[in-house]
Amino acid sequence: MSELSDLLLLVLLLAVIGLWLKLSRAREQATQEGRQQCQQHGLQLLDESVGLRGMRMRRVHGRWLLERCYTFEVSIDGDDREPGRLWMIGQTLTGVSLPTIQSHLPGLSAEHLPPTPADNVVPLRPRLHKDSRLH
């Protein structure tokens, strides 16, 4: 029995190592995609790395595939840190979310931006108790 348990432990260890190597290669691919997206959109990829945020099953053309979400930080003008995300299935980029640069464009003053509300609090009416409705 000891040989069988040793064999199962070895197989489990090899499976964990294989999964770790596969996820490492996927992370390298995601880092490369993040770099490419940042270069294409005029952003700077900070820390030159991405981190796995989560995984989910996604249905594509009738098949369920594992989609990974990676997060990273970018800089628009070199003085800020903004979040970015990308989603990948296998080695294919399926989605990307980057910060908008509208407020960081040179020459774009506050008068050209859409007005922001003065207050984002919505006043609520006082809640009536059951007893007060009857009177």
Rank of each mutant, 00 (worst) to 15 (best):
S24V: 08
Q44W: 07
V16P: 01
E48N: 14
R35Q: 15
D6Y: 02
G54P: 01
Q29F: 11
S49R: 15
D47P: 01
R25D: 05
L4M: 04
D6V: 00
G62Q: 00
L45M: 06
L23E: 09
R25Q: 11
A15L: 09
Q39R: 15
L13R: 10
V11K: 10
G42L: 04
E28D: 14
V16N: 07
Q44F: 05
Q44C: 06
G18V: 02
G18C: 03
A26Y: 08
R58M: 09
L46D: 00
R53K: 12
L13Q: 13
M57C: 06
H61M: 10
A26D: 10
K22S: 10
V50N: 01
W20Q: 14
K22T: 05
Q29T: 14
R59D: 07
H41N: 13
E28K: 15
L7Q: 04
L13H: 07
Q40T: 06
R35E: 08
L21P: 02
R56F: 03
H61R: 14
M57K: 15
L7S: 06
R53M: 09
V60T: 08
G51C: 05
I17P: 01
G42W: 03
G34Y: 04
R27L: 08
G54A: 13
L23G: 00
D47F: 08
G54S: 11
R56Q: 12
H61P: 00
V11N: 03
R27T: 11
A30S: 05
R35G: 06
L21Q: 12
R63D: 06
R27C: 07
Q40M: 11
Q40G: 00
L52V: 00
Q32S: 13
L52G: 02
V60H: 03
D6F: 04
L46P: 02
R59N: 09
V50Y: 01
E28L: 15
Q29P: 01
Q29K: 15
E33M: 15
V50E: 02
D47W: 10
L7Y: 08
S24C: 08
E28I: 13
V50F: 01
W64I: 10
L46V: 08
R63Y: 04
G34A: 15
E48R: 15
R53L: 15
Q37K: 09
Q37M: 11
A15H: 08
E48V: 03
L19P: 00
L45K: 04
V50M: 02
G51P: 01
Q39I: 10
C38V: 05
L45I: 06
R25L: 12
